[in-house]
Design a binder for these strands. Structure first.
Length: 550
RNA sequence: GGCGACGUAGCUCAGCUGGUGAGAGCGCCCGACUCAUAAUCGGGAGGUCGACAGUUCGAAUCUGUCCGUCGCUACCA
């Protein structure tokens, strides 16, 4: 566009490498980020899209113990799985790394030490349950026992799932380790705390000044502030994670993942800069006044991105706070929250086995849970694919290219004398691009996809009115003008779809030429148009249900 | 228990700071067309906007209560 390029950091939630991620994660964070990033690049902005695999934390060590392998093996397995998924979905990271890199450890240490030096981190002594058999301290939720309130025998140390009450693990009757079943003992242990209370006022004022944020994000965040920010322990008794850079603190403690993982946005930017051969390049996105940073996450991550991370950035100083955190709600599967571990919904891999990537991207984008939880199913994805993507857009491309091939000597025709109606169609397409740009920029991605679909429908309507297949017999010159107009229109509509449908967009680029900006490209008359093959295949739902399991 | 969100046509969802007779897509019915992946286009039917009470000249939109669903509750990330 005509405005100067803006550095835009597209920060995407870090998938936890403890197991497969599901379509809810994809629709909630990775895919919206990719659509947004692809658009911003086309609009001429300088996008830096970063994320990586979160490879530390207790759940990974527990899974590793259970399988008799090392935590690194678990992390490597799922990191590789994620990389494969990104490639198959064409997610366009500028840097997809992991929290296991040396760089990330160094950046984390730098953040930790600066906050420590400035007094925002302090050291405290507390007590915690210790599993003697496993030789490790236990997070609250890894302790089970009888609920003192309702007598439920398998209450967790943080909460009783039967009566819903919040618990302290000391309250449990007959506590036992969820890992070994042994009775845990209480031991005293030292930890560092992030003094969130230092930032209560400044964060409250900052949040009050946010404009354009989704209401649920703002409500939730302000609610946290109103309840009062409590200091949080940021180290754990664990041997898997980033070390604590304080002499004599002990080798059996690590920095806790929620403190460390969010730093990944910064360390990934630095890693990217170094790979570019310009180690200071990250500053444009983190220090520039004109820079924007947009964090794509699920709603369960809201407080980490609207409270804790901004607190850390504020404490560290001189780094930009999030411009927007357009957190998504949940994607549900037939009413239940997607959960790979509980077998609700499809994993990303299962989704890719059932559907071609553009179809999956389209169906999920049409159902991005931007305002409220959104329900989806295999049938719904198939429906979106067949009745919307194939019927309206795929078919439009196919019918126009077929007619141009058959009725215009197989080449792009000269524009000729276009009527007001012809010009109105093109003006409508161009206006749709402007509308969609505005919507995507505000992260209203469903609406922008709808805008693209409406534009496609207008081209279909235009063809039904002008009936070029009849004109071909009665007025071939006029037929060529109409088809040239329709082809130009399709050429513009494809731009609006391109952030959502990279695979079919590539196919169209071979036919119509590259898309080089957020505007309708020029089409050269005389360019050959071969007989087309369909952009997308219809989904055979019955075959899906009888054949391939997930 | 506390906090938050949601409950709008058969299905999935929009409806911002209250005000043209309540919207979209898909599905359904009728019609047109046949270039196109039985695709497309036009028209239509269909909702007491969860329930009740209140504020207001006027509420899907504000307040309260209730019913239902869900999420979070800060040592899972």
């Amino acid at each position: 566009m005509s405005t100067p390029p803006v550095p835009i950091l597209v920060a995407v939630a870090w998938p936890y490498a403890s197991g497969s991620r599901h379509l809810g994660h994809l629709a909630g964070a990775y895919l919206p980020a990719d659509v947004f990033a692809r658009f911003q690049r086309l609009a001429g902005n300088r996008v830096l899209m970063v994320s990586g695999s979160d490879v530390h934390g207790t759940p990974i060590t527990v899974r590793a113990d259970a399988e008799g392998v090392t935590p690194a093996e678990i992390a490597d397995r799922y990191h590789a799985e994620f990389l494969d998924a990104w490639e198959r979905l064409a997610i366009t990271w500028d840097c997809y790394t992991s929290t296991g890199t040396e760089n990330h450890g160094a950046v984390t240490h730098d953040m930790f030490l600066r906050l420590l030096e400035k007094g925002h981190i302090d050291r405290r002594t507390g007590e915690q349950f210790f599993d003697v058999e496993a030789g490790r301290f236990l997070p609250d939720r890894y302790i089970e026992g009888t609920c003192p309130h309702c007598g439920y025998a398998e209450a967790r140390g943080d909460q009783c799932e039967d009566c819903g009450r919040t618990l302290d693990p000391e309250e449990l009757l007959g506590p036992r380790s969820k890992i070994t079943g042994a009775e845990p003992e209480v031991r005293s242990t030292d930890h560092f705390y992030l003094r969130l209370s230092d930032f209560e006022e400044s964060l409250g004022a900052w949040l009050d000044g946010r404009e354009g944020w989704r209401r649920h994000v703002l409500n939730f965040s302000k609610g946290w502030i109103e309840e009062g920010l409590q200091d949080r322990a940021i180290t754990r008794d664990l041997d898997w994670g980033i070390t604590v850079p304080v002499d004599g603190f002990g080798d059996d403690k690590r920095i806790y993942v929620w403190f460390e993982a969010v730093i990944g946005y910064l360390s990934a930017a630095k890693e990217w800069a170094r790979r570019q051969g310009d180690p200071e390049a990250w500053r444009d996105w983190w220090e520039g006044d004109d820079a924007r940073s947009v964090y794509f996450i699920g709603k369960d991550n809201i407080p980490f991105h609207t409270i804790i991370w901004p607190a850390m950035l504020t404490g560290y100083g001189d780094l930009n706070l999030p411009t927007d955190v357009p957190a998504n709600q949940y994607l549900t599967f037939k009413g239940g929250k997607a959960s790979a571990s509980r077998g609700v919904g499809l994993t990303i891999g299962e989704g890719l086995r059932l559907f071609e990537p553009d179809a999956l991207r389209y169906a999920l984008a049409a159902s991005f849970p931007e305002q409220s939880d959104t329900d989806i199913s295999v049938e719904e994805i198939a429906r979106r694919t067949n009745d919307e993507l194939v019927a309206t857009w795929g078919n439009l491309v196919n019918r126009v290219l077929s007619m141009v091939n058959a009725m215009c000597d197989g080449v792009v025709p000269e524009p000729g004398d276009r009527t007001d109606a012809d010009l109105a169609l093109l003006a409508g397409v161009d206006a749709a691009l402007v509308t969609a740009a505005d919507q995507i920029d505000r992260v209203e991605l469903r609406a922008a996809l709808r805008t693209a679909m409406e534009a496609a429908a207008e081209v279909n309507a235009y063809l039904n009115v002008t009936e070029p297949w009849k004109l071909a017999r009665t007025d071939p010159d006029r037929a060529r003008v109409v088809l040239g107009t329709a082809l130009d229109a399709v050429n513009g509509v494809r731009v609006a779809f391109s952030p959502y449908l990279p695979f079919s967009s590539s196919v169209l680029e071979e036919v119509l030429g590259p898309v080089e900006g957020w505007h309708r490209p020029e089409l050269s008359p005389g360019r050959p148009i071969d007989k087309p093959t369909p952009l997308f295949a219809k989904v055979d739902l019955e075959a899906l249900e009888s054949g391939e399991p997930g």
